[in-house]
């Protein structure tokens, strides 16, 4: 299989998922906390800050086993991003204090941002293995993914799918992207990890299947 188109597709998918997670989190936080203007700026600002931190931290030894690092990042992102909304609902339902809720909510934003920040440098390493001087196209697909993420979230995911189910859907996309990774560097990744990815896909499909029921339960908890 041709690796380069897969790499571009992967870049697109990963940046798409990353920004949609953040937008979902921004909307969720504004449903639970006050002050929308502040909320959005802080969330997007934290996201960009964390992306920067992720880029900075991606140095040196990090690049030795790019495939392994990338797959673990994707697994964490799938778990965190896909279930962040549900977690915030549960946290709110447990009547946690405003401070703890705020802290954990923003912690999600930061962690997802930092992990996403690792992605582009790693992907650049991959493309460097294939061809020289094509980082610009990686950056290009990165931007394109962010653009599609913003548009799709505002027009389709948020109004027609809802925050909770959108989280599951994007988590699923992320898991699928992780599976794509196995085509890029089949040598460095073990079977166990492959099965783990498939299992994650399965869980997310299950959640999507029962999304109506889950939405109802969470809403009931929210309105209490």
């Amino acid at each position: 299989m041709k690796k380069i188109p897969i790499l571009y597709g992967l870049t697109f998918l990963l940046s798409f998922c990353s920004i949609v997670y953040e937008l979902i989190l921004a909307q969720t936080l504004s449903a639970f906390l006050a002050n929308t203007v502040l909320r959005y700026s802080v969330t997007i600002g934290l996201y960009l800050f964390s992306l920067g931190m992720g880029s900075l931290l991606a140095e040196g030894k990090f690049f030795e086993k790019p495939g392994l690092h990338l797959i673990f990042i994707e697994i964490f992102l799938t778990l965190l991003g896909g279930f962040s909304v549900v977690f915030m609902f549960l946290l709110d339902g447990s009547r946690a204090s405003f401070f703890i809720f705020s802290l954990l909510g923003h912690l999600f934003v930061v962690v997802i941002g930092v992990l996403s920040g690792f992605e582009v440098p790693l992907l650049i390493v991959f493309i460097g293995q294939q061809r020289d001087n094509k980082e610009s196209l990686i950056l290009g697909f990165n931007y394109l993914g962010a653009f599609c993420g913003t548009i799709l979230f505002s027009f389709i995911l948020y109004p027609y799918i809802g925050l909770v189910s959108a989280g599951f859907l994007v988590g699923l996309l992320n898991a699928v992207a992780g599976i794509l990774l196995f085509f890029i560097c089949p040598q460095s990744l073990s079977r166990k990890i492959f099965y783990l990815q498939c299992f994650l896909c399965f869980i997310l499909i299950l959640c999507l299947w029962h999304s109506n029921f889950l939405n109802e339960q969470l809403l009931r908890m929210y309105l209490r």
Partner: peptide, 11 residues
């Protein structure tokens, strides 16, 4: 340090 330029961009 491509990643540092990227980081500066993000900051």
């Amino acid at each position: 340090r491509a990643n540092r330029i990227l980081a500066s961009d993000y900051f």
